[in-house]
């Protein structure tokens, strides 16, 4: 990746993080930790040109699809879609408020660019499997990206979907696992150990690529490799820092689902910009 592209993506990730903090501060509730951990990956997906999408035509038939299976991290999706021009940025301040298109968990009927309504964990990956099957039946080249949480992998349905995706050899399905090691009640290893995560996906028949979720070169290389795999689904296991970019939120399970105060938001934004 050239320096100019990297600088642009870093700038977008910074804007996304600032928007996440502002939205959550304004709404007074929501999920910062698992939104911030995915900001770099969302910046890459939507601003590097890697997705075939058109904000002017959000239902374009041949488009690539992104399903946020870990729906509670919707601030990162909303901030990214607004930055990309799917809807006016002024909506961000209405997050979680009555009458808003930006519900507490994503609603595909309300928000242009949201491909699936999610929130009840474990279901988005299955929906992505269905999308990949449908696109393949229609002989479309599009890819389906499913963003999962590592805590979400406690859900049995994830493994039902994992089996089905491998069984049907869905080469057009790319999972991205936000492996931040935390869930609401604490560290995933203490709450419900999902390790060995990589071995699990391999044994379910997926092609697995492990990356640093905050390194654009690694993200780029993983996604281009994943697109080359034609006969199996790919899981990009993205080792991330929950709350990335805000020192007092990083690796703190308390910031899974808590909004920052005005003061905390100012401190967070100065760190992000710094």
């Amino acid at each position: 990746m050239d320096a100019e592209m990297k600088k642009m993506l870093e700038g977008k990730a910074e804007d996304i993080r600032v928007d996440i903090i502002d939205m959550l501060c304004e709404s007074g509730s929501g999920h910062p930790g698992g939104s911030l951990s995915m900001a770099d990956i969302f910046s890459y997906l939507y601003f590097s040109g890697s997705l075939n999408i058109d904000p002017e035509n959000p239902r374009m038939e041949d488009r690539d699809r992104v399903v946020l299976s870990k729906g509670h991290a919707c601030p990162v999706l909303y901030a990214t879609l607004a930055e990309k021009g799917f809807f006016e940025k002024s909506h961000l301040k209405t997050l979680r408020k009555f009458g808003s298109i930006l519900q507490g968990h994503p609603d595909m009927k309300k928000v242009p660019g949201v491909e699936m309504s999610t929130g009840s964990l474990g279901q988005g990956l299955s929906a992505a499997v269905g999308m990949a099957m449908g696109l393949r039946l229609d002989k479309k080249d599009a890819h389906v990206f499913a963003i999962l949480g590592d805590g979400e992998c406690d859900e049995g349905q994830i493994w039902e979907a994992a089996m089905a995706a491998a069984h049907y050899e869905l080469g057009n399905l790319i999972g991205i696992l936000d492996r931040n090691g935390l869930q609401i009640d604490g560290f995933t290893k203490d709450v419900m150990n999902t390790e060995p995560m990589i071995d699990k996906w391999l044994s379910f028949g997926w092609h697995v690529i492990e990356i640093d979720a905050h390194n654009f070169d690694e993200i780029e290389s993983a996604i281009s490799q994943a697109k080359e795999v034609k006969n199996a689904p790919v899981m990009i296991v993205a080792n991330s820092v929950k709350g990335k970019g805000v020192s007092f939120m990083e690796n703190e399970c308390g910031w899974h689902g808590k909004a920052p105060s005005l003061e905390e938001a100012e401190k967070a934004k100065s760190e992000i910009a710094g």
Partner: peptide
């Protein structure tokens, strides 16, 4: 469980 959500995904296409 997987079947129902897969059906939903198919319907979106």
């Amino acid at each position: 469980a997987n079947m129902m959500s897969v059906a939903a995904g198919l319907a979106t296409t």
